[in-house]
């Protein structure tokens, strides 16, 4: 499908845009190649010592060592372990928060709102440091606790937005057939809201996975520390770039596959909004800290459309 923003081009403008496209591609590729070549050149530092270029074999031979891969593997597993544990707790906390914020009693609603604003407005890193120093939990649980509370607050807001966006008839029907308010929420409203918000929740879990790297700063031995700190210190500075690229590749592989999953689920269950541009990835901003804001718009938009 072509975009509605511009005409389907005629032969002239098609030729022109193909020309610009080709030139743009050439410029981009040449720029990239130039960067690669420049990085590959040997360098003379200020004291006259010559360092080999980044792609020199002497910077990469370390990957023949099985120990390197073992260390990276353990690091990646440690990252995944923290992310998995934190994700479970974040979901639980998110459910609690969403129910607290929607509670009929102001005695529950108001404190929950205050707590939620507090957690959402504070850097995760500061929370990790706080938990580490105050509760002396060790770096793993400090990271898990901070990540679950922070992401739980955001997932809670997403779930609340999802429940609010349901037609009122859902709740009324539940109450009318004699379910208690809590049962209505659990058995009628919550499953629908969860399904609706699943893309946002998974996007938030990608953020959580990325943020496990913050635990590096409070001393947890995860992928970043294993690759860039321990290995680079052990094998020396000349391997730092190589380790950086490998760690980056591992992170990208983990995050992109989770993002891809999120996008597939979004296509299946997400709100179908009409979109002006050609690619119809869901307008989800996983790091905005308040993803429902964007989604609530496309939702109201979708309901206008159909």
């Amino acid at each position: 499908m072509s975009s509605v923003l511009y005409d389907s081009p005629g032969p002239k403008s098609r030729a022109r845009s193909r020309l610009i496209s080709v030139i743009g591609t050439i410029i981009l590729i040449v720029g990239l190649l130039a960067l690669i070549v420049v990085l590959g050149l040997p360098k003379t530092s200020a004291n006259g010592a010559v360092q080999p270029g980044l792609w020199d074999i002497s910077r990469w031979d370390v990957f023949n060592d099985l120990l390197v891969w073992r260390t990276l593997g353990f690091g990646a597993l440690a990252t995944l372990r923290m992310a998995a544990v934190a994700a479970v707790f974040a979901l639980l906390i998110g459910v609690l928060f969403s129910f607290g914020r929607l509670s009929a009693s102001a005695w529950i609603r108001v404190p929950t709102t205050v707590l939620l604003e507090f957690f959402r407005g504070m850097p995760v890193l500061l929370m990790m440091l706080f938990i580490l120093l105050v509760f002396a939990t060790g770096s793993f649980w400090a990271g898990v606790a901070a990540l679950s509370v922070y992401n739980g607050a955001i997932i809670g807001e997403a779930l609340r937005a999802g429940i609010n966006a349901l037609p009122r008839g859902q709740r009324e029907a539940g109450l009318a057939i004699g379910l208690t308010p809590v049962a209505t929420r659990f058995r009628i409203e919550f499953p629908q809201a969860f399904r609706q918000m699943l893309p946002i929740i998974i996007a938030q879990l990608v953020v959580l996975l990325k943020d496990t790297s913050l635990a590096f700063i409070v001393g947890y031995n995860e992928l970043l520390r294993a690759g860039l700190n321990q290995l680079a210190n052990f094998f020396g500075d000349q391997y730092k770039f190589s380790f950086f690229f490998i760690v980056l590749a591992i992170y990208l592989a983990m995050n992109l596959s989770l993002s891809w999953l999120a996008r597939r689920i979004a296509k299946r269950t997400g709100p179908q909004a009409g979109s002006v541009t050609t690619d119809s990835a869901p307008p989800v901003d996983p790091h905005s800290g308040d993803p429902y804001a964007v989604d609530a718009q496309s939702r109201s938009h979708a309901s206008q459309g159909g």
């Binding site: 990608v206 990325k210 790297s213 590096f216 700063i217 992170y251 995050n255 992109l256 996983p286």
Partner: peptide, 8 residues
């Protein structure tokens, strides 16, 4: 860039 951790 979006899938790279800020720490990295």
């Amino acid at each position: 860039v979006r899938n790279t951790p800020l720490t990295l």
